[in-house]
Amino acid sequence: MPFLELHGVGRTLTRLDDRPLTILSGIDLSIEQGDRISVVGRSGSGKSTLLNLLGLLDSPTEGEIRLEGLDVSQFSNRRRDLTRGRDIGFVFQQFNLLHGRTALENVSTPLLYERGATFWKRTAIAAEMLERVGLGNRLSSTPVQLSGGEQQRVAVARALVRRPRLILADEPTGALDIETGETVMALLDEIATASNAALVTITHDPSIAARAHRQYTLEDGGLIARDLITPDLISRGPVTRAKLSGCNS
């Protein structure tokens, strides 16, 4: 059974003048354990909205999202929060480390929402995770004392410390130089592979997107498999493309 499935998912917002604005429409996507998926798209194409839906941070206005076969719309807010904390890890473009906290505190923060032995051993677990991302000697450094690459590695450690089954990376290399970006992606790949987690990366960078097994482009609210995009398809319009994206999910 897929870990996460999107069936005909759409997201429409209401503008200030009450007119609807469709961001996403008819998205079908299936994510299995160990998948490597990349999504590229222009600014405003709905990449982050898709990421929010995948991360249970937002709800679709049409279609359904199933997590291990269960309809997520039936989840209470609390269950969504708990599921997100337990099964989904986020890596953000701007790292979003907690200001004023050390690397160790940043990585151990998600473990504050754990229970049992994991909660009580959170510092040791966080230190071990920082060791894995090569920051064992920077445990006491605060974000301002770390380089961009180091900050993103802390963010990666923080996203993975609860051993999520799905890692959502939003422009993870957007604020890094090419070389550091490659290093961070290699690290993400390595750790995701080690824990058999699915990795969904949203990026502008074709070389980062190319690392994924499945590559998609978001355009006009639809998700299109990269290998199906042809000049002929582009001329046919978004409805056809949405159908095609469903065939590839």
């Binding site: 991360g55 941070l57 609390r78 929060d81 708990l82 599921t83 998600p110 929402y113 923080r158 609860r162």
Partner: peptide, 16 residues
């Protein structure tokens, strides 16, 4: 607000 959003993304419930 941003920090609270980040915590929510880690799984912090509204009650928490």
């Amino acid at each position: 607000i941003q920090e609270i959003g980040i915590r929510r993304s880690f799984g912090a419930t509204a009650a928490r």
